[in-house]
Amino acid sequence: MEIPYQIFGSKSSVDLDVCFFVDELNSIQENHETIKTYIEKSNIDTNKVINANLAIIEKGIVIACFKGEEDELNNALYETYNVYKQQFEKRIIRKVNRNVEARIERCLRSLISYFTRTEFRTKAKEALRGSIKDKVVFLESIQLDKIKGFGKNGSQIEVYKTIAFQLGITLALLEAVELYTKEGIIEYYPNLEKYLLRKESNANALQEYLNEFISVLKKRNYETNFKKDT
Rank of each mutant, 00 (worst) to 15 (best):
K182M: 05
F115H: 02
F138G: 09
A76G: 12
S13V: 06
S141G: 11
V18Q: 01
I214W: 04
I7Q: 10
N47R: 01
S141E: 10
K90W: 09
Y160F: 15
T37K: 12
S131Q: 11
N82P: 00
L171H: 05
L73P: 05
T170D: 00
K152Y: 03
I163S: 02
N47S: 04
F213I: 02
S12L: 07
F120P: 00
Y114L: 07
R121Q: 09
K228N: 14
F226A: 09
E158W: 05
L206F: 06
L206G: 07
F138D: 12
K123R: 14
Y114H: 11
F21P: 05
F150V: 08
E183G: 11
G68F: 09
Y189S: 11
N74L: 03
A205Q: 15
Y209C: 12
E40M: 11
K152S: 08
E187F: 13
R129A: 14
R103G: 04
V83T: 15
E72M: 06
K36A: 14
E193G: 13
E187I: 15
Y5L: 06
Q86R: 14
E126R: 03
E140A: 06
S110A: 08
R129H: 04
S10Y: 09
P4Q: 13
P4T: 13
A205D: 15
I93V: 13
I39N: 09
P4V: 13
S215E: 11
I28F: 14
I163F: 11
L217M: 09
V96G: 07
V159R: 01
K59F: 08
T170A: 06
D15W: 01
V100M: 04
N26Y: 13
D15A: 04
Y188M: 14
C19N: 01
N43M: 14
T170L: 00
A124V: 07
N82I: 01
G151I: 01
S215V: 02
